[in-house]
Simulated scan of single mutants.
Amino acid sequence: MKFVRTLTWIVITAVLVSFIAMNWVKVPVNFWPLDDGNYIHFQWPVGFVALFFFALGVIPVWLYFRAMRWRLNRRIASLENTLRASSMPAETAPAALAAEPTVETGTTTTASNPAPDA
């Protein structure tokens, strides 16, 4: 699957680079109207203008989806933690009652960790 994704990015990059290379002619871009009926304009290459406005359209959508993904990942983690906390078994006896003193050494043992036989 990574191969398909990499190949797709390579094709998109090749198309964009060829578009920019073929359209590197500078054109006037009207930026802001003035009082006398003229415009403030810049001489920009067509490829740069296309990339700029493509990014202007893509970046807000990309940021929205990243924020949505972050929010949903936080929500999933919270639900997993809640489920993990509610599914833990309750202890039937406190740890102090589960320990039994031994007669020989005076150490304590538990049911899960018996003292070694000597």
Rank of each mutant, 00 (worst) to 15 (best):
S87K: 04
L16F: 08
A67N: 04
P116W: 05
A111W: 05
W32R: 14
L56M: 06
A21L: 04
P101A: 10
A99D: 13
R84E: 08
I76V: 05
L7Q: 14
F65E: 07
A98Y: 04
S112K: 12
E104T: 11
R69G: 08
N113R: 05
Q43A: 08
N113G: 05
F19N: 03
W62E: 03
S87G: 01
V49R: 08
S87L: 06
A98I: 04
M1C: 15
F31H: 13
A95S: 09
F3N: 10
N81A: 12
H41N: 15
R84A: 13
K2M: 06
V29F: 10
L34M: 11
P28N: 06
S86C: 03
D35I: 09
M88E: 08
L51W: 14
K26T: 03
I10L: 11
P94R: 04
E100V: 14
A21T: 07
F54G: 03
W70F: 08
K26Y: 01
W32L: 13
T102H: 06
A85R: 06
W9D: 07
V49Y: 12
E80V: 13
E91F: 02
R84Q: 09
V103M: 05
V49A: 15
V27Y: 05
N23G: 04
V46N: 09
D35H: 14
P94N: 05
V49F: 10
L34T: 08
D36M: 02
A118Q: 14
F48T: 09
P60T: 01
A67T: 05
V25H: 13
P45D: 12
W44I: 13
L72T: 13
